[in-house]
Design a protein around this nucleic acid. Structure first.
Lengths: 127, 127, 127, 127
DNA sequence: GTGGTCTAGACCACC
DNA sequence: GTGGTCTAGACCACA
């Protein structure tokens, strides 16, 4: 995994885990990789992974069973969706619309690009 | 003006100025507010405003006439548009599409929301 | 049984056993539940129960007869009382008084709450 | 400042700050010591102080002004009191009463000890 | 094995 | 100057 420069690594890891929960890769009550494991596979310091897990625990997406590891919370997917949707509708979408306006891009052009995006995505998934 | 937590204040100020240039509030060769004036009105440290101006000067959106102040460059609007468009198409749009996918939001819902947004915007401008 | 988050499970189990000895539920020379039995009924790892038993053995509250099980020591109740009383007077009480002070709670309010507590306890015991 | 062994240092520091807010030593909107300052004066690693501050920021007792430092939140005292009172009444007091019961200590003895405690406290404050 | 905490020290962006 | 992040490495309690 590669990390963007402008965002803290531990938040990118948290987002990465959130993505997996949204996509259904990691399901309810499933154990997620141990701190050390994930640290090795992502090539970061265990402390950094720990911070991600603490963050996700704070917003009740994952939970800790002492001595055993971290587990996906029962309603993690719903919470994650609500959490992201709120940010998306409240912050990103207005900003997005302002940009369309300022840059004089029509919504139909966006729609067209999205359809292209979707086609490409499906093709790559068939590989 | 309120600042978002996750982005540097000086960049938010620079974006704020960029918005005004794109909207045509501040036009070619016009003098923009002095560092001190803007610092007072935005309630931030003058150094922070200075940094915004330096940033905009670096990408040739504004220029400095020593002892007089900062001025909008002749082709500022075009440059700003190009600058933003590149970021928008290259970074924001793909991310936006990923979110639509993960959050299961259709492009038509976005289109509909955008039309509502546009109507509201026009109404508030008539005040 | 539910465990508090901030205290080690094995200590909570030890306290639970201590409570039973103080209350007289488990009496002198009586065999206490086997490690496995208690582990199943408390839904914890047998190692954890074992640790509780070792701890209690260390302070001579229970003893081990090899191949048979753990037994309450003859003077367990006295020792447990002394042990707890020391901690109570030396650590908990001063901390308790500090809290009364900081939170601005009067000793008379405590007294009143205690009397309510006692009444409720007696009622529930009559069931 | 000396730290107890059985509790994380960063939590003890957080409690220490909470005490100061409750006592009124540090008041509303006041700047608290910088991470580095406090780290030096308490002789701990800056990261440890940082954790305390993050914790207190999470429960909205203090807030950060970027580039300036941490400040006591407007309603910090109320929040801190509510926070502690909840824990006190919900967890510590029932536990306390159980101990009185198990150890056969009367509430009047507690009351008497509290009065002694109060007298001693007042005497030491007059120094 | 698991997480949790702490230190030492570094580098960075920001105000 | 301020906080924020990250690494490397250590030690510990716990299951």
């Amino acid at each position: 995994m590669e990390f963007r420069e402008n965002e803290a690594i531990y938040l990118q890891i948290a987002a990465y885990i959130g993505d997996h929960i949204l996509m259904g890769t990691w399901v309810l009550n499933e154990k997620i990789p141990s701190v050390r494991e994930l640290a090795v596979s992502l090539q970061v310091n265990p402390n950094t992974v720990m911070r991600s897990y603490e963050f996700l625990q704070g917003i009740e997406i994952i939970m800790n069973k002492r001595g055993i590891g971290f587990f996906v919370m029962p309603d993690a997917k719903e919470k994650m969706t609500a959490y992201r949707k709120e940010r998306f509708l409240g912050q990103e979408l207005p900003e997005f619309f302002r940009n369309l306006d300022l840059l004089d891009i029509s919504i139909d052009e966006i729609k067209q690009r999205f359809e292209t995006f979707t086609v490409e995505k499906n093709q790559s998934e068939q590989l």
